[in-house]
Amino acid sequence: MSIETQALVVGGGPAGLIAAALLASSGVPTVLAAPPAPADTRTTALMHSSLALLSKIGVWPQLSPKTGALKKLRLVDASGGLIRAPEILFDSTELGLTAFGHNIENTHLLAALHETLAGLPHLRVIASAASRIAPGPDRVEVTLENGEEISARLVVGADGRNSTCRDAAGIDAKIWDYPQSALTLNFSHSRPHNFISTEFHRRGGPLVVVPLPGDRSSMVFVNTPEELAMLARFEDAALGRELETVTHGLLGRILPDEARGARPLSGLSVKTFAARRIVLVGESAHVLPPIGAQGLNLGIRDAAEIAELASAALAAGQDPGSPALLAAYDKARHSDARPRQIAVDLLNRSLLADFLPLDAARAFGLWALAALPPLRREVMRRGVALADR
């Protein structure tokens, strides 16, 4: 016999866990199919709108002491081009906020989410991945790897860039590779970060340094695969000296943690965010370069959108997987995610291209942000999705 439910979330990453928590806490009977996730030493910068949603499901209070606040965001043109953009500093107080967001180690985030999920009455968690997904006119029939069968009116695909849910829905994905890789690591440093996140725009790609609690920060360093493969083999002291150089001594002496990871950089976009009773959230729908902390924050807003639509449908006695609901979800996510993905992609490509007109356009854009406070505040509002919810 199969388990019958209103919603099934497939995927055990942060976006999937948050989607399941938001659905269940909104009164939607939900099953989460989430195999144990591999260890993740990365960090996530959660922006203001994401923190509000985590507060809604009761996760934020226990996470707050383990995070580094992002009170200011600094952009530095380190591309070495003939036309150099001005350095710009975004201050959260311009929006009446104490911080744009907070940076958290993913191990802490996942642990807190699992603890929260265990206490939700409308949620059942099964530690298994989906092996077969068969959409039908009224329900989606799903078989898990452990042999269990689930029948759901709505499936939320949060199963990453190689999404089984996306394939089952028949949704085409455009996937492309960048000539870059990303090195991720955490480190301690001798100078305080003063709660400032710094994004260096280098010719090979962005280098992003984000505060953690105390005199610690996390880094995403984007460069050529060959350069980062060499750095990944450095011993701690040698890597620390190299990072001190590329960060222009901003944080003083740097001592990297032993754990570090490197992966090729790619992008992914979908033609539609929903089809055949399946909606996509997180990296099953969009993969972006690590610029502006948009990745997981977009996934969290995906989760919030489908939770709101599904709970409203059930409250009105309607089908949470209906074509009308899927169309509403697709429209909402297109208007939010697509412009952000295009902007991040263009900025990353402009760093790769040693092309004077692109350097001039980037410099002019940052000059305008520095010189025009109303424009700067609007960009900040959109960056933290302050007006969304």
Rank of each mutant, 00 (worst) to 15 (best):
S181G: 15
G317E: 03
A173D: 05
Q318W: 01
G317D: 04
G282M: 09
T43N: 11
P211I: 03
L95C: 12
A129T: 06
T98H: 12
A313G: 13
L70H: 07
L351D: 06
V59T: 14
A7H: 02
A313T: 08
E227Q: 14
G16C: 06
T98N: 15
T245Q: 15
L8M: 07
A129Q: 08
L369H: 07
L123E: 03
L23M: 09
S335Q: 13
F200M: 03
F234Y: 13
A127I: 00
A293Q: 05
F364M: 12
V76F: 09
F90D: 05
R203D: 07
L117S: 00
A78S: 15
P61H: 07
G136V: 01
D330Y: 07
V287R: 07
V209H: 09
G170N: 09
P192R: 14
G205V: 02
A371S: 14
S2A: 15
W60L: 14
V140K: 04
P256S: 13
S50C: 09
P206N: 11
A313E: 05
G365M: 09
L228N: 14
I104Q: 00
L314N: 11
N194M: 10
A152K: 08
A152C: 11
Y329W: 06
L358M: 09
R277Y: 04
S284P: 03
M219S: 06
